[in-house]
Design a binder for these strands. Structure first.
Length: 900
RNA sequence: GGGCGGAUAGCUCAGCUGGGAGAGCGCAGCCCUUACAAGGCUGAGGUCGCAGGUUCGAUCCCUGCUCCGCCUACCA
């Protein structure tokens, strides 16, 4: 039944490389767990044996996850650590549970992020990307990708991520580029992609347009400048745009300015006058400022809309470089912010400034380089996402996509319902080039699946649109482009829709919504059945972890210091739903200690297996302690499964932690030692060995998704079935394994042991002293205390006499466990005055409880309206408290007598 | 401006459908007991943000308030 050959082979091989105390075999195991060598050993072995690979032709039920592709620029940070750990836990759990499991990995080309990095590099060499030219820049970008793209992959492997590397994808590999082109062309054919002259968010540093989502808001101090504007005065924070004004706007119901609406005013300005038409528009807030706004359709999104509604001309005075254009007259060529200062000075000189107020407001900045975004009108490519959003909303409403936690659903609806056209062209080089060609002869536009060399209509020469697509366009196709779409591949048929998307809530709109839209549109089925949005990792001060802020301990260092398993377990244990998590080294250290605890528990088992014959064990009935630990294990198994099913990773981690440490180690191992070291019969020892092995082996399987390395290491040394723990079955609660009787009886035994230890502690009796204790068991405890007599004696360090007719001897302390009493002989070991004080305190506490319960039970409405079992429970508690109280009073009296 | 979330032990946080307040770390005392001092045993410590309401009963549900976060937005 045991098969240890494979593990031993690997262990031998790795030992030559990594020097460690953790030798294979059971004879000599280090008393501290050394993770480094263990971790290095197993991953390559798992991979080489193909355990990570999914099989499209398998008859098993599929379970699939598309890994949110990290950027090729990336190094593993805490956020990756968390998200990848959670995905790996689900993947490993489902794989063990018999699913045909695919976790598909990959990386993202991250066009704008790569541009920022490369342009910074070039700047250091005193060059610009234009100096290089497009082709050379792309060569360099590919080089960068080849060099740094592997980093994150290596780090994922170190984390233990059990992805199917044979299916690894990159958003710009040939297959995915094909998917992108197909998607673009189809949307064009469906009339959902179009070009438009529209006001866009322009980053003058990146020299590209940005989508609304790529603009971040930053609070800045500014001046609110009140300008005299002909017959009116109005306030603005952007006086430099006055040069581009083509209108004034007021609210339609604003009586103050009604007489002006429709007029064209010649307003005195810097160079002579400017001509503006006054319009009435709902967008104006009559209560803000003076209730009049200047309309600059060329440089403000609101003004652009107003201008469109009223036919005001667009006048562009700021260029793509952030400098004033020729249309700005004497300011031409000047930086936009410099112009702002100058124009205010100039207007002051001309007496055009009424007054200036300080003003704090939010300005839009580029999410990559933080440059203030300039709204500009230009021709861009758009997706009309409204109809796609409708189907995506429906998918969630009908429950075909379930978002966890629930709260995010509302955010999803809100964004989707108010969605605006998606600007998808970017004036960048690194990315998927827009598959559109312009005929230089007749000016026609052609969107094509294949590259065009000449105009399909007139045969004239064509040039391709120079722009590339928003990175998120390809990301939005990820769940099906990675599986071979648009071809109908076996992978696509088997693994789509994916089972769950695990990601952070900050890319809900960027990514999750886009996938939901594009997935439902192209595949006519949801891209994922569940979306689990996990928390965001922050540092101890609550700051978002970010390398640029330098507030992060490098997760790779932490993994090295405490071990990958401890790192993973910490992240899982902190991943509660709802609140962001703060990482702290103390916590990781705690779980490192947990790994060590498990290691040492295993050491105890492994070093006591001599003579173990599994087949014989089944002929011996389990003891009370054995029934108890088996029952607790079954409860833990059910609990972990249930929590994982609901994505409650922290609860799952806590359940397995509590079981291993506080039930298995703290109690059962101590009890089992008696059967190992001082067994009454060989059968008793053999049975204990059997219980230890099976319980530990099951616990390891239960823990494996969280701590893959240490569990494999120990499992291989234990008797086991199969080649690797990672393909062994995930534990299921065995039918009939929960013994309510055993749990209740062991509960009493444990309470008795704690009570005796308590007396020892309270009375400062040295741990080495063996106490003499007499137990008068209550009727329901007779059997338990008989059965577990030796356990009680050993764990409480007492000589025990169980006697149903026992009377309390003189000079004894009393402890009450339900209907049972235990008398501990105090002769010569106790300070009776202190004991008296303690008793007095406890009597007071008991009286308080009694008064509280009596008050509760005396209220008629409680007795009549509360559920019967609640009332009954309170009655029992009251009776119990009265008993305790009386016993304590008796004890106090007894001590008085004894002291006199 | 709109939306969402949080306020529970010294610290960091659990507490899922209302019915005896929990964990980890830290702290105090005792112990190197032949798996583990990265450990064991025992213990102290909480008006569950404030004020109302619903209920027999509220940390949990409702209302208001205070203080923190986060997301989102075309108040120039």
């Amino acid at each position: 039944m045991t098969s240890r050959r494979e593990g031993d082979e690997v262990a031998r091989e790795s030992d030559e490389v990594a020097d460690t105390g953790a030798d294979a075999g059971t004879g000599d195991i280090a008393d501290r767990y050394e993770p480094a060598a263990v971790e290095a050993r197993w991953y390559p072995w798992w991979e080489s044996r193909g355990y990570f690979r999914a099989d499209a032709s398998s008859a098993k039920k599929p379970f699939s996850i598309s890994m949110p592709p990290p950027n090729v620029t990336g190094s593993l940070h805490w956020g990756h650590g968390l998200t990848m750990t959670l995905q790996d836990i689900l993947t490993r759990m489902k794989r063990m549970d018999g699913f045909n499991t695919l976790w598909l990995p990959g990386t993202d080309h991250a066009s704008i992020a790569v541009h920022v990095i490369l342009e910074r590099q070039l700047a250091a060499e005193g060059k610009t990307k234009e100096d290089l030219g497009r082709d050379a820049f792309l060569t360099r970008a590919w080089q960068w990708k080849e060099e740094s793209g592997g980093t994150i992959i290596r780090q994922l492997k170190r984390l233990g991520a059990s992805c199917d590397w044979s299916r690894e994808r990159f958003t710009m590999d040939p297959g995915l580029s094909g998917s992108v082109r197909e998607a673009f062309v189809r949307l064009w054919e469906e009339g959902l992609i179009y070009r438009d002259d529209y006001i866009v968010n322009w980053c003058p540093r990146c020299q590209t347009v940005l989508s609304d989502l790529e603009v971040e808001r930053e609070e800045r101090d500014a001046e609110f400048v009140y300008i005299k504007y002909g017959p009116v005065t109005l306030g603005t924070v952007r006086p430099e745009t006055k040069l581009g004004d083509t209108g004034l706007a007021v609210h339609p119901k604003d009586k103050r300015y009604k007489h002006l609406v429709g007029q064209t005013l010649e307003v005195p300005s810097i160079d002579g006058t400017i001509s503006v038409r006054v319009v009435a528009d709902e967008a104006v807030d009559p209560d803000f400022g003076t209730g009049v706004i200047k309309v600059t359709p060329g440089h403000d999104p609101v003004d652009f809309e107003i201008g469109r509604r009223h036919g005001l001309p667009v006048r562009t005075v700021i260029g793509f470089d952030g400098k004033m254009t020729a249309a700005a007259g004497k300011y031409a060529g000047l930086d936009r912010f410099e112009t702002r200062k100058r124009i205010v000075e100039d207007m002051k000189a001309l007496g055009l400034i009424d007054h200036i107020e300080p003003y704090r407001h939010a300005v839009g900045v580029c999410y990559r380089c933080k440059t203030v975004v300039e709204p500009l009108v230009s021709k861009q490519w758009y997706v009309q996402v409204k109809p796609l959003a409708q189907t995506a909303i429906k998918a969630v409403r009908e429950g075909r996509i379930k978002i966890v936690p629930r709260g995010a659903t509302k955010t999803y609806y809100h964004w989707m319902e108010n969605i605006r056209p998606w600007c998808i062209s970017r004036q960048l080089w690194w990315g998927h080039r827009i598959p559109a060609w312009y005929c230089e002869n007749d000016g026609s536009v052609h969107v094509s699946r294949t590259d065009l060399a000449s105009c399909p209509t007139c045969g004239g020469s064509v040039r391709q649109d120079p722009d590339v697509l928003d990175t998120w366009f390809s990301s939005g196709l990820w769940p099906f482009s990675t599986l071979g779409w648009p071809d109908t591949t076996p992978d696509l048929e088997t693994f789509y829709p994916t089972s769950v998307l695990v990601t952070a809530p900050d890319i809900l709109f960027f990514w999750v919504c886009r996938m939901a839209m594009l997935g439902t549109h192209f595949m006519r089925d949801v891209p994922f059945r569940h979306v689990y949005l996990h928390v965001i990792v922050r540092d101890a001060e609550g700051q978002k972890m970010s390398k640029s802020k330098g507030n992060v301990a490098d997760p790779l260092e932490v993994m090295g210091k405490y071990g990958t398993d401890a790192f993973r377990f910490t992240l899982a244990a902190l991943a509660a739903q709802g609140r962001d998590i703060r990482i702290s080294e103390d916590r990781i250290e705690g779980y490192r200690n947990f790994a060590n605890k498990l290691w040492n528990a295993s050491r105890l088992v492994l070093t006591n297996l001599d003579g173990y014959v599994p087949a014989k064990a089944k002929r011996t009935a389990p003891s009370l302690a054995e029934q108890w630990i088996e029952s607790r294990l079954a409860v833990a198994v059910a609990s972990v499964r249930d929590h994982l099913r609901r994505y409650r990773f922290n609860d799952a981690a806590s359940a397995v932690y509590q079981f291993v440490w506080h039930e298995l180690c703290d109690w059962y191992l101590e009890m089992a030692k008696l059967s190992l070291y001082r067994a009454a019969t060989p059968a008793e020892r053999n049975r204990a060995q059997h219980t230890l092995v099976t319980v530990l082996e099951t616990a390891l399987r239960l823990l494996h998704p969280f701590m893959p390395f240490i569990t494999e290491e120990i499992w291989q040394r234990l008797p086991h079935q199969g080649d690797s723990i990672m393909i062994a079955p995930y534990p299921r609660p065995r039918r009939g394994a929960v013994h309510a009787d055993a749990e209740r009886e062991m509960g009493s035994v444990m309470a008795l042991i704690t009570a005796i230890r308590n007396i020892r502690g309270e009375m400062r009796i040295a741990p080495g002293v063996t106490l003499a204790a007499t137990v008068r068991p209550g009727p329901e405890h007779v059997k338990a205390f008989e059965d577990a007599g030796r356990i009680i004696e050993s764990l409480a360090r007492a000589q025990l006499r169980v006697d149903a007719g026992a009377m309390r001897p003189p000079n004894s302390a009393l402890a009450v466990v339900g209907a049972s009493e235990v008398y501990v002989d105090l002769t010569g070991v106790v300070d009776l005055a202190a004991e008296r004080q303690r008793l007095a305190k406890e009597i007071a506490r008991a009286s308080e409880q009694i008064a509280f319960l009596e008050g509760k039970l005396a209220r008629p409405e409680f007795v009549t309206r509360a559920p019967a079992e609640v009332v009954e429970r309170e009655r029992e508690r009251l009776a119990e408290q009265r008993g305790v109280h009386d016993k304590l009073v008796a004890s106090l009296g007894w001590i008085d007598d004894g002291a006199c």
